[in-house]
Amino acid sequence: MSEDLIPIIETINLSKIYGSEDDDTRVAALDGVSVKIMPGEFVAIMGPSGSGKSTLMNILACLDRPTDGQYILHGEDVSNLTRTELAIIRNQRLGFVFQSFNLLPRMTALENVMLPMMYQRENRLPEHQREEKAAAALEMVGLGHRLHHLPKQLSGGQEQRVAIARALVNDPLLILADEPTGNLDSRSSKEIMELLRSLNERGRTIVMVTHEPTIGHSTKRIVQIRDGKIEFDRLNGRIDLSDEQRFEYSHLADPEESPAEETEKPQPVEAAARVEAAEANQAEPQKKTVKKRRSK
């Protein structure tokens, strides 16, 4: 249990600055972001374009390094690792889901899913075991019957499932999804979100970047970024939490104290956009609340 209490992600004053100090074009894409994500969470990072959410995602994904501040991934400070060390972390600890799937077009679904195992440095499995493991991952995302299809023979939703299977296959600590539904129609989007949610229910920690309110609101927690800072970070009130989950989120605002509209009953999808707009208007006071609570 104590193992579980180590945050999967903990950032302390994370900053990413582009351009040199004496440069006029100096831009702070991230400006002192501190966030803590516990095991089993399902978090949406949201924000308008240019807010810095992609920069945050890249740093969380160990694809980029912060200019300042610390990023502690499951107890290990990864802020200043070399490219090679980061590659090994990505391989062992992280699973990626991209907006554009990024499947290799000349490989079958099975081969695509096996790819991360090829770059494993430790506990390498023999070929046939990798195949079994990849097939099991594809089975888990509901594509057990499409193992030997090429990406172009699959629908968008199926392609994204293959990508999710690929993200799962090395049994990562954390799954990072960057606009996973951005290239999908609404039906496929819904399916993919349901898949991610079911993975989360089975204990996977998932962090997702999205700008779509409906998608963001199907997660348990929303971190809103604006101008490189956290605008608000709160539980998604529309999700019912068990006591255990309440404990997991105890580092955040108490859901009971959340504003009234957030504890409303789950709404039809069409209404979500209006809620989002309302939330955005109330961003300022909430941010203060969160800050005050956190500093305790």
């Binding site: 994904a61 694809l63 490219r83 090679t84 590659a87 090994i88 990505r90 391989n91 062992q92 990626f96 991209f98 990024n102 290799l104 790819l115 991360p116 770059y119 494993q120 690929r166 090395n170």
Partner: peptide, 16 residues
């Protein structure tokens, strides 16, 4: 380039 990016993302080191 995209394939290279993908391979890097899933754990290929520069050496790989």
């Amino acid at each position: 380039t995209r394939e290279i990016g993908l391979r890097q993302a899933i754990g290929a080191t520069p050496k790989d």
